[in-house]
Structures are given as C-alpha cells and as structure tokens.
Amino acid sequence: MKNNKWNRIVLKVGSALIAPERKGCSSRYLLHIAKFILQCRDMGIQVILVSSGSVAAGAHFFNNIENPSLAIKKAMAAAGQNEMMAAWDRFFDFPSAQILLTHGDLRDRERYDSIRETLFALLDAGILPVVNENDVVTTDALKVGDNDNLSAMVAAAADADSLIICSDIDGLYNKNPHTHDDAVLIKEVDAIDQDIYAMAGGAHSSVGTGGMKTKIEAAEKAISHGVSTYIINGFNEHSFEELISGNNPGTYFKPYQRPMKDDLHWMTHTAKAQGELIIEADSNSPFDENSEQFTSNEIVEVRGDFSVGDTILVSSDDGTHLAKAESKYSSCLLNFITTHDNDEDNDFQHHTGPVISDKNIAYLNQDEEEGQPV
C-alpha cells in the first residue's frame, strides 16, 4: 500500500472540486490537488488526471439555467472544457494534453489500443494527460455516464498501479455519514460484494453525476486488473498529505492477487454487449475452457442487433449470464438460421462453425480466485 511502489497512478477529480458553485473554475480545492500531482512527479511517479467539470465550468455562460436541455448541457461542456484545461494549466510548468473519450472509443478494440499507445507516448514525453468524457458528442448509446467508471477504464488501459478517486467524504462508510452520526469509515476492503454495494447508497453532490455506487463500480473494475484503489476526501488537503506519506486517508480496496488478463478485462469491464444469445439451460455448457464452442443449433433466441465482431452476451434460458464474447456472425444471419431451423430444405445451420470467437471470451461463472468476476 506504500506509494513508493507506484510507478503510475490515475487521479479522478470530480465536478464539485473543479467548479463548486457552478460559476466557472475555482482554485479553492485545486491547489492542494495540483500540489499532490507535482509531488508525485517529483518522486518519479507518472500521473494521469481524469477530470470532470466541463459542464459545471461552462454553466455560468448560460444565465444559470436550472433545468438545461441536453443541447444546452453539451454547449456548457463545449464552453467549459477550455476553461477547465486552462484552470489546470496555470498550476503547472510542464505541458498537459487533453484527451476526450466516449465509451464508443473504449469498447472498440482498435481504438482502445490506440488510446493506450497515446497515453504511453504522452507519459514518456513527460506530458500530463487530462482525460474527460466527450460530453459534446456523446449519446446515450456511446457514453460511460460518469468519470468514476471512466477513470477505472483508463487505469486499466494505462496499466496503472493505483487509482485514486476523490469524493466529498473520507471514503466508504457502513451507512450514509450525511444522515447518520454513528456511521463508521471502512478503512480497507478485501473483496467487493453485495454488502459493499449496499453501503454505497445514492449520490449526494448536487454538482457531480457520480455517487458512491459508481465509485464502488470503478473500484471493482480497477482491482480486477490489479490496480490498487483508494476513495478519499478530495476536499481535504490532509488526504493528499497522507497519500504522499504512504498512508491510507480513506478507503483502500485491495487488488486481485491474480489480476485478469488485459484482453479478458477489456471484454468483461469495458466492451459493451450489443446483443444477446439465449441457449437452453439444461444443455451442456459450452463455456468451459476444455469444451468445444457451441454452434447455431444450440441457440434458442437471438436478441438485439449486432454485426460480425461485435461483443455479445451469452445467457441460458433460465436467466443465467454465462459469458461475454465476440460474435462470428451477425444477428440477422443468426436469426435467419434459427428461424428456419426446422425447415427440411434448410441445412445451412448444420454447416456453420462456432458462433463466437474462442479468442475473446469472458466467462462469467468462474471463481474469483481465477481472476474472474463471480
């Protein structure tokens, strides 16, 4: 847990720290965060900053509209992004680089690899990458939705040692500390289960979009890749002083002892299923590393629209999710095959090979000891 083992960290800073009053960027809380970044770099630790705040920073240009439309929010993001980058730049005497992403970029394997290469090139050149979701162009189908989960995806892509997520409280409590005086801070989490999610509750900040639940989701993504994760109070300068000293100022999430491999992690936590195949629950499960891949004959139902190479979910008809995988056929073709399965003159389905690629499969029913989600 000591930070002298860090080579590369991802630091996630939320909107409430950037523009606490939605009147443009403020240095009120950013000074001690910038100091922490400088100290890390002086110690030879590479830093990637995932910074929210473009919408909050640009809100004051639009007469403080209480319930802005989606188009206005996108315009706020466009206007606020420059102001947010300028706010960070004024603290540093080294260059920074803006990286705007959508989930569509991350879930496409070719673009994901390109993002990795860009991050590594920037870090090697001593440039601070500043990552944010591209709110101006993103849609419901393409957005991550919160920068907590985005920061975990970036941490995995960048092979970071640690992810530090700033919150408005000291970390994860056993109950909401805003409403319960007897709430107890959970200093260390060995494994994330439903009990941990039950403690997370809902969002509290009126400025940011991510509550504690999204931070737990992000922690789960990160630790499965072997990334140590902290949730700390970003409003408290002492939090960063403790981190620099090698101490835990908030909640520390232990990483998997046997992290998931890069391709498997990407398939499980970053790639988004574009459709779903349903197979019979009582059939022999094809989702065993020692068994052959299933063919179209075993498909009960095809759901959604997807193309060759898209990520799909494979489930049994009792509702059990079995795997995420890369489809070798389009939904249109699989629908045609399964619809005509009983036609005497149609034997095309008998000549189709495995429906999913055996190279990109994330099994969803294996033990956590194997580096898999349960």
Score class of each variant (00 low, 15 high):
Gln257Arg: 12
Ile278Phe: 01
Phe235Ser: 14
Leu322Ser: 00
Ile279Pro: 03
Ser316Tyr: 02
Phe294Gln: 05
Pro255Lys: 07
Ile278Ser: 06
Asn284Tyr: 03
Ile278Asp: 00
Ile244Val: 12
Asn236Trp: 14
Glu241Arg: 12
Gly226Cys: 12
Ser285Gln: 12
Ile231Thr: 09
Leu313Val: 08
Val314Cys: 07
His269Asn: 09
Gln257Ile: 01
Trp266Glu: 00
Glu237Tyr: 12
Glu298Asp: 03
Trp266Val: 03
Thr268Ile: 06
His321Arg: 14
Ser224Ile: 06
Ser315Leu: 03
Gly275Tyr: 01
Gly234Phe: 10
Asn290Gly: 07
Lys272Trp: 00
Tyr256Trp: 06
Val227Met: 12
Gly246Glu: 10
Ala325Cys: 10
Gln274Asp: 13
His321Ile: 10
Ile278His: 06
Ser307Gly: 02
Ser291Cys: 09
Glu241Val: 14
Thr229Ile: 04
Phe287Ile: 01
Ser283Trp: 00
Trp266Arg: 09
Asn290Trp: 14
Phe235Pro: 10
Ser283Arg: 07
Met260Ser: 15
Glu242Ser: 12
Asp317Pro: 03
Gly304Cys: 03
Asn297His: 14
Thr320Glu: 04
Tyr256Gln: 11
Asn247Leu: 14
His321Met: 12
Ser296Ala: 11
Pro259Ala: 11
Asp318Val: 02
Val308His: 10
Glu237Met: 15
His225Met: 13
Ile299Leu: 12
Phe240Ala: 01
Leu243Gly: 07
Ser245Lys: 15
His265Ala: 13
Phe235Ile: 11
Asp263Arg: 12
Leu313Trp: 13
Asn290Thr: 13
His269Phe: 15
Ser307Asp: 11
Thr295Asn: 12
Glu301Gly: 10
Lys261Ser: 08
Ala222Tyr: 01
Ser307Ile: 02
Ile232Ala: 08
Glu241Met: 07
Asn233Gln: 09
Lys272Phe: 01
Gln293His: 13
Ala271Arg: 07
Glu298Ile: 02
Glu220Ser: 13
Asp305Cys: 11
Thr320Val: 10
Ile244Glu: 09
Glu292Asn: 13
Val308Tyr: 13
Arg303Thr: 08
Gly234Thr: 09
Val314Thr: 03
Met260Leu: 14
His225Tyr: 15
Arg258Pro: 11
His321Cys: 15
Asp263Ser: 14
Ala271Trp: 13
Gln293Pro: 15
Glu298Gly: 02
Ile299His: 00
Asp288Gly: 05
Ser239Ala: 13
